[in-house]
């Protein structure tokens, strides 16, 4: 059973998230906090396995709380659940020790999957961040900077370019006359090949690429 601590300043959202998570057989919400400092207090009293934090909260934001939590509880996995769709928040979350980043508008679809990914210590990539990472990768490959040197197939290279140009999975499927499922498989293969499926490696890469400050 994965024991989860939930922090969001909106009671309605907390209730919704709790009901979704509790309905999964292996997930259980053990505590709810209305802000970052309450989350710290709850985690100290009864350490959970996973913390799901909103960013914009009064008193202490989710990012500040994540930094504190990953310092005081190194084994704790952290997920950010937020309204902000900006890859800079994703990279900042990564920097302060979060394993994943879920948009509230996709929470119904992605949250449960992200919880499982976080427990496997895989980063749960937010789509905007994936595009930014791939763009950076292509730019570095073009200028000859050091990049993870793993063979990417021609088809994958095509997909890579289209992702960098900001096309959605559906667009890419139509452009290349392949199914959405195939595009998703290519994307996931590429990420694994570029080393972006491993949280530590991803963090190191983002720092090297100048996407976040060390």
């Amino acid at each position: 059973m994965i024991r989860i601590l939930l922090a969001d300043d909106h009671a309605l959202v907390r209730r919704g998230v709790r009901l979704i998570l509790d309905s999964e057989p292996d997930l259980e919400v053990i505590g709810e906090a209305a802000d970052g400092s309450e989350a710290l207090a709850l985690a100290a009293a009864d350490p959970p396995d996973l913390a799901v934090l909103d960013i914009a909260m009064p008193r202490m934001t989710g990012l500040q709380a994540a930094r504190e939590l990953s310092r005081s509880h190194p084994d704790l996995r952290i997920l950010i659940l937020t309204m902000y769709d900006n890859e800079q928040f994703f990279f900042e979350a990564l920097r302060v020790g979060a394993a994943g980043y879920v948009l509230k508008s996709a929470a119904d679809r992605d949250l449960v999957e992200a919880c499982h990914a976080a427990m496997r210590d895989e980063p749960f990539l937010y789509p905007g961040a994936e595009t930014a990472l791939i763009r950076e990768y292509l730019e570095r490959a073009r200028t000859g900077a050091d990049i993870p040197d793993r063979a990417v197939t021609e088809r994958e290279e095509e997909v890579l370019k289209l992702v960098a140009e900001g096309h959605s999975t559906k667009d890419i499927a139509e452009l290349l006359y392949i199914s959405v499922k195939t595009v998703e498989r290519h994307r996931s293969n590429i990420l694994a090949k570029l080393g972006l499926k491993d949280r530590q490696e991803l963090t190191r890469y983002a720092i090297r690429a100048g996407l976040i400050e060390p």
Binding site: H10, V13, G16, V17, M83, A107, D108
Partner: peptide, 21 residues
């Protein structure tokens, strides 16, 4: 927009998922 409507809609979205299930 973020704090009021956004959060309420998030809650609606999560409830819908549960009801749909």
């Amino acid at each position: 927009l973020h704090d009021e409507i956004g959060q309420t809609l998030t809650a609606v979205l999560l409830d819908l998922k549960r009801v749909a299930k």
